[in-house]
Each structure stands twice: as structure tokens, then as C-alpha cells.
Write a protein that binds this DNA or RNA. Sequence first.
DNA 1: AGCACGCCGACT
DNA 2: GTCGGCGTGCTC
Length: 715
Amino acid sequence: MTLYAEVIVPLPLEKTFYYIVPEGFKEKIKIGSKVLVSFRHRLLTGFIVKLHWKNPAGNYQLKEITELLDDKPVFTSTFLTYTQKLAAYFYSSWGNLLQASIPPSLTVKSRKRVFVTGKAGEGINMASLSNYEKKILSLLQKKSYMESYLKGKLKVRDLGVHLQRLEKKGLIFRKEEVQRKKRNKDKFDIPSAGQLEIDFSQDKKSIQAAGRLTKSLGKQAFSRFLLYGSTEKREGVYFYLIKHCLALKKRILFLVPEIVFTEDLIQKVKKRFTGNTAILHSRLSEKKRELAWKTIKDGAAEVVIGTRSAILSPVENVGLVIIDEEQDDSYYQKQNPAYDARIGAWFKAEQEGALLVFGSAFPSVEARFRAGEQGYLINLEKISSPGQVEIVDEGKERRLVSDSLYKRIKLRLARKEQVLAFSGRRGYSAFLTCSRCSYIPRCKHCDISLTYHKKREELVCHYCNYTIKYMNVCPKCGSKVVQKKGIGVEVIGEEFKKKFPKKRVAVFHPDEAGNKRRQEDILSLYKDGKIDILVGTSMLAHRFDLPPASLVVIFYPEITLALSDYKAAQKTFLSISQMLSHLKKDKDSRAVIKTAMPNNFSIKMAASGDYHAFYEQEIQYRKIMNYPPFSCMAEIVFQDENLRVLAEKSRQFAAKVKKKGNIEVLGPALAPVARVRGRNRIQVILKAKGKEEIDSVLKSALSKSRIKKSVYIYE
DNA sequence: AGCACGCCGACT
DNA sequence: GTCGGCGTGCTC
């Protein structure tokens, strides 16, 4: 009897495809197996999602599966169900999500390489060749290239037709190459379990919380909690829970934000769990990632700790899922495949009957609201105030460094104390503008002004890296005066260098390409007390391994408020709170916030460390405006080079949705960044009571429009 | 996504 | 006629 396999491929296609299972694989092939299939002239890694004894495809001519790639299936059927649900939730492709769930080195793909034949070397009748054919041949004279490379190099969409013609003329030939990394057969040793030391303070609230959570854990049925408290308190509870979970012979999945995943944290975890721990984060080498994944797959890892993608790791028998710093944006992956690790954690915990713990010192108002409503908020303590914070009104003091601030800094430095300065500006530098005609150099491909990098003497686009040389003459009016504006960290750093020329001033911006190493060096210099003033963005504020300073200066945190984003207040509150958390906790220490919006509530509440007051006001605002958590929003961004087509398609989409009723449609409107890499962007925002309403219309409204689009879900 | 097919204007 | 740009349908 013939066995038929239903296969999902890692392409943005909803469909599954049927193949015939060759005799040789019949015994070994299972649901969840990874296979190599021929799919329209190319070879792809696919995954078996179902097996059939009857031909499910009708009289369609089926192909055979080319190869079974492993002895044992890579996915369990529960994992398949889980990822399918997660992908559907975020309108992303299941196949892509499955591919993202295994180390890239374990997948296979075919590519086509193009060679010239001997005939091409002899005198060919050049006249008989088309422009493109000539170009292709001259490129290939030296060596062979991949089709994809040639396509990028020559910028032709239909490279295939030209290659076909050349092939017919006998001048080139193509060879399919299967890219397969070496299988990693080497054994990994399973270290013995270490002693788990609990530095659980004898704190009444923590004990209560731990008790309540442990009870839930013991039930081995899905339940969830929001743990509100400082990092130290939360950690105490986490480690207590982990110990109990291990005693139940259940696994733990512990997620942390991307940015805090530093060597420090890894060392800390390693120290606590000498063995049976797998660590997963984006900076792992291919080899290490594969090893960690295998440790988990084999069931050797008892604790899996990692960033958002760890939610796609093959952990089984999970009793506890922790998402620390619940409010962090990095849990939401917005690009192929899109998914939110927090929702993933929920699905996972539900499926496993596990205890789900969200933790934060500054929970998102959405999470805080739901937890309060549904009675699963656990309050560890009143978070202590950040200390003495002074707000300086930009309107009253225009200079970046005022006399009083200068004196303050001087005093600290004289006492051999360090100063931390933060800029609210997300980018790290300034842009240029002509003082006569106000011309601003902008990116050729993106709707954004170019950022000025003083050291490199260059103007760079933040979105596409388009770079031009620094100009001291305005290209529009020829005026010699071109001055920089804006208050990025570089400008702040320079200002400090000017005011304190004998002091060691450093600027931290790790998002600059190829600079990670040096940035880490800056941090360790600061840690060793070899830097007097350290300037950074909210990125720096995320680094909990930063030693606290006795003077913290925050410049213009209101910049995040200018974002057209319903979460702007929350983001501002959060970033200021994180910056202030680096203030030393003693009477003597001071923080200064320089702002043009001294009366803004998110700035004021962050300065006084009053999360509760912030929450109360923000949740009122969300309610009045009918924003999440009181509604579900879907943001759809359409992208195309042709603005006319783009506008037309997005209007059609909006009209389609409007017809269905009970959904509020905002837009179409230009996206905040209206052009990126030459592509225009138009967005439509849908607002509905719940996600079900969105789901009931969105899929059909998006179907078969060829235009590029991304969907983001907020609730 | 990536590719082939086929249509069509434009160039020789 | 044939080159090459563009829209569209399909992939087991």
C-alpha cells in the first residue's frame, strides 16, 4: 500500500502539499519528521504534518519525498499543534515558524549555480547576444556564481529567461547544489546537577507569594500570575519555584528580554544551576545553538533559559514558564515569522498544564489591568522610590548643561564618583541643517533625515545604511553654514568633553554595526571606574549589570512621547524608570531630568517612582480612548514601490473591512516612516472589541492581494 | 517566496 | 521579429 505524506514547507503559504513516501522510508517516517522535498524546481526542507493511507490529493500527479533527513522526528505532534496555533494568531506562516524552531544548520535548501561551457570561451558571435546575455557571460568568465547572486548583481527580476536562452545556445549550464551543513554527531556531555542555593530572604510577602505560586504549581494544571516587584524579590521567588518544579520532575522555561541577556546573567544562571541548563539567545554561534537545541530535544536540559526564540525550543514536560520583564518589547518578533513570546508562553503553559508567571517591576498596563480584573496579581512589595529626582524645565533653562548641573557634576567628579547620563533620543546622533535655507539632508530611499556621525564624517540612514560624506556646504543654496541639530548621545558626550576636558567621557551605543566589542569594553572600563562620565540611550539603561551612580542625568525623555503610538506614555514611563534604577540608593545621590515637558504625568510619575499613580491615570486614558486592554488593535502595514498602487490597494482593503461592520477602521494613512529602502508604506489600523472580531474579517480581507504587508496585533 | 508563462509596448 | 518589463497563477 502506498503511504502519502502531508508536508508543510517553510514558505509563506497556508497550504500543505502531498507527497508519496518511498518504500525505504515507510517504517521510519513519522508525523513531525523533517524531509527533503522537490518543490517546483527546487529542493526544500519540509515537515510531515500528517500521514495518509488513502490518496488525499485526487488524481493530482504526486512526487516522491526525496529524502528523510533524520532517524527520529524533529517535532512532536503537540509541538505542531502549538506552533500552528501561534502562527495563526499572528497571521504568520506556520512553515516559517517551524523552520525558526530548529537551528538553521539542521535545514537543507537547494540553490542553482551557473557555469559557462567551453563553447563560451571561443569566439562567440557577440552580436547575437542580448544586453543581459552579454553581461551575464562576462560575469561568468572568471568564475561561476549562484543564481541569486547574479540576480542581485544585475538587478533583473526575470533572470531565469535570460539564463534559459543562454542555456539553449549552449553557452552556460546550471547545476543544483544542495546546501547541507555537516551533521553534528559529536556527543555533548551532560553535566551533573549542581546545588541550587536559594538566597530567599525571609521576607513575608515573598514567602506568601511563593506559597501561593507553589500551590498552583503543585496542581499541575494551567494557571497564571503576574508577579509585581523588584528584580531581587522576583528572582528570589523564581528560584524558589524552579526548585519546587524540579522536585516535581518537570522542566522550566525561563524567558528574559533580548537586551538583558548578557554574560553576567549567563554566569549567574550557570552558578546557580551547574548542570542541566540550556541557554538560548540570539548571539550564540551556530555550533552552540545546535548543541543547546539538541540538549533540549534529548530531554537532558531541565531548565531552558533564553530570549524570545526559546519559546520555540523543543522543551517537553514543562511545569513552569517564566516571562521576566513582561513589558519588554523584544518579546514581540515583528518579522518573519511574527510572534509574541508572551502569547507563545501562554499557549505553551496551557498545553502543558503549567504554571505561567509574568514578572515585572513596571508591568505593562495591559497585563496589570487583566491581572487585577481576573485576580492573579501578586504584589511583592511597594517598589521603593528611585531617590531624589529633580525635574528641570527646558523652557527655563535652555542650555544643555546649566551652571547648577555643571557644579553638580564637578562635585561628583571631584569626589571620584561616576556620572551616568541618558538621552531619550533613540538614535545616537544629530542631523544637519542649513541655517539659511533650512535644507536637511535626507535618505534617498527612506523618508527620514540622515544621521550625522562626527567620527566617521558621514551622514548615515538609520533604516537602510545609505551613507554620504559629510558636507559643510549646503547643496541647495551653497551657503557655507551647515549646522547640526538634535540631542543625540554623541552631542551630549561632546558637550561633556568640552565642559570637562580632563575627565574621561565615553558614549555607549551598541546598535552601531561592528562595534559590539568596543562597546562592551567601554562598559567594563566604566565598571572598573576608568570612565568618569558615561553617556547612553535607553539601551544602556537596560543593562542591569551597570554599577549604580550617585548622579544620573536624563536628557529629554519626552522624545518617546512624540511617537504616534498609544503606548507612548508607557514607553516613556518605563524608560525613565529604568534609567533611574541606576541611581545609587542613598540619601546623597541625585537624579536630574532635563525636559521640555516637566508637567507630563508619565515623566512626573516616573520621577517620583509612583507606578500605581501612573497606572491609574494611564488605564483611564486607555479606557476613554478605547485602546488596549479595552480593545484589540491590528496594525496592517502595506508596502510597495508604487505609491499609486499602494494607495489603491490599501483603500480597497479598508473598504472591505468596513463593510463587515463592528470594526473601527483608522486610515489608510502614511505610516510614521512613510518610505523605507525605496518602498512606500501605508498603514491601516483596525480596532475591535476583541481579537475574534479582527480574526473574523482580517484573513479574508487580506487574501490574494499580492502587495507586501505585515500585521501587528496589540491587545 | 520564487519562478515560469504570457501579454504587450518599443525598438531595429 | 525579439527584448525585456510587468501582472498573474502555481507550487504536491
